[in-house]
Computed example of a mutant assay.
Amino acid sequence: MTKHAPPPRHLFLSELPRAAVTLGSLALSQERLRAAPRGDGRPVLVLPGLGNTDKTTAVLRRWLNRLGYRAYGWELGRNRGARTIGEDALLLEKRLEALFGETGEPVTLIGISLGGIMARLMAHRRTELVREVITVSSPFAGPPTATNVWRAFEWLTGEKIGDPAVAANREEAAAPLPVPSTAIWSRSDGFVNGAICREPDGSECRAIEIDGGHLGVHMHPEAMLAIARTLAGEAEAE
């Protein structure tokens, strides 16, 4: 599979059964998850993926809170791109400003899929409000046609991947970040090409590979542990 090709059909069709396996592995990995590095109380804002809400990130946020972080939902409803965060992402920017004002310190952003692209945009536009960015299966580094979900993106968001504004946001998100960043990705992702979910080799953005699908990836034990280790400063580039 080349960098600009979507995942093959067999990976796409396996997403639902692999999501069930992910949930099962989550239940069987509680001891490992409880042993994850402890948090330092920093604020963490979790951004959901395309079409999802804060309900889908509740498990991850509860776990981060138990580790000792202050994890927040984005409180913007269902992620429908610009329809949700507003033109020029102003609503998301206001949410970030509010958390910065409430906590008195820069916020770590964890973005899942489309949420990761939004997290990278915020890090570029409001660097002073962002401590670190962690993306999970976020296709920020390549064309939307290297995914199997670009038509769903257009339908849910009302945006067209060829629109100049959409292309400009994509280019901005792909640029190296001015804050520490980590990209968690999978070469067996059935929705998005894993190669566009990380920066090129040699960049300052750490890349951590896991073996899993796209649906529910933020509840994959390996992804959760990678997040905890990154927050604790223990993750190494792979």
Rank of each mutant, 00 (worst) to 15 (best):
M1V: 14
T2R: 15
K3A: 11
H4I: 12
H4V: 10
A5L: 13
L11R: 07
L13D: 12
L16W: 15
A19M: 13
L23E: 10
G24Q: 06
E31V: 13
R32G: 11
R34M: 14
A35N: 07
A36V: 08
A36T: 08
G39E: 07
R42Y: 06
P43I: 09
V44S: 01
L45Y: 04
V46L: 02
P48M: 02
G49E: 05
G51S: 06
N52E: 06
T53K: 02
K55E: 12
L60H: 01
W63A: 02
W63I: 04
N65Q: 10
R66W: 11
L67F: 05
L67S: 05
Y69D: 03
G73D: 01
G73W: 01
L76W: 11
G77F: 05
G77Q: 06
A82E: 14
I85T: 15
G86H: 03
D88F: 08
D88R: 15
A89I: 07
A89H: 10
L90R: 15
L91F: 07
L92I: 08
E93V: 15
R95Y: 02
L96M: 01
L96Y: 03
L96H: 08
F100R: 14
T103S: 09
G104H: 10
V107R: 00
S113I: 04
L114K: 03
A123C: 08
A123L: 01
R125I: 06
R126T: 14
E128S: 15
V130I: 09
V130R: 00
E132W: 00
V133L: 01
I134F: 13
I134L: 11
S137A: 14
S137L: 09
G142A: 04
P144F: 07
A146N: 02
T147C: 09
L156H: 04
L156W: 05
E159G: 09
K160M: 06
K160S: 06
D163A: 11
D163H: 10
A165P: 10
V166C: 07
A167Y: 04
N169C: 13
E171Y: 01
A173E: 08
L177A: 03
T182D: 07
A183S: 14
A183G: 05
I184Q: 00
W185S: 04
S186G: 03
R187D: 14
R187V: 10
D189N: 09
V192L: 00
I196R: 00
R198Y: 01
E199I: 00
R206T: 11
A207P: 04
A207G: 13
G212S: 12
G212Y: 02
L215S: 10
H218F: 11
H220K: 03
H220E: 14
H220Y: 14
R229V: 09
A232G: 03
G233F: 12
G233M: 10
E236Q: 11
A237P: 08
